[in-house]
């Protein structure tokens, strides 16, 4: 089982913590494209871990989040294509998304000083508990 398992573990622990034994009616996660998470594997791992923790989730939804970078030097915003970097580099970014700064510079001014505005990794968007708690 791959790195996705470790990512799923954090989410499973978080959901267990906020649900406090209550059933979860809906769990919405955002998956940033930068980390190239294999959603099928992640989904399998998360369901296994939730099951192990006796956390019941009625509906589990994934939203894809596009990558958006903004240069701190010239203000340019862009969405890089990971495919153009090749699978080896994408794999590196998969493990630690911040290493994108090692491989991509601003297309306008060539700076590596840019912010990752969106699309980094896995985030919890919404946890809706039974009895209307959130």
């Amino acid at each position: 089982m791959v790195h996705e398992w470790a990512l799923a573990e954090s989410i499973a622990m978080y959901v267990a913590r906020v649900s406090k034994g209550r059933n979860v009616r809906r769990l919405v996660l955002s998956i940033g494209r930068l980390q190239s998470v294999d959603i099928e594997i992640f989904d399998f791992a998360l369901k296994e871990l939730l099951n192990e923790g006796n956390v019941v989730v009625d509906e589990l939804k994934y939203l894809n989040e596009e990558i958006l970078l903004k240069c701190r030097k010239c203000g340019f915003e862009w969405s890089p294509s990971l495919e153009s970097l090749g699978s080896e580099v994408s794999e590196c970014i998969h493990f630690i998304p911040e290493v994108i700064h090692s491989y991509i510079t601003c297309p306008k001014c060539n700076s590596r000083d840019y912010d990752l505005l969106s699309g980094r990794g896995v985030k919890v968007v919404e946890v809706v508990l039974e009895e209307g708690g959130q």
Partner: peptide
Amino acid sequence: ICYYSGGNPLPLR
């Protein structure tokens, strides 16, 4: 982190 930065610079905020 050098396993992943590939010997390239990694300037970060």
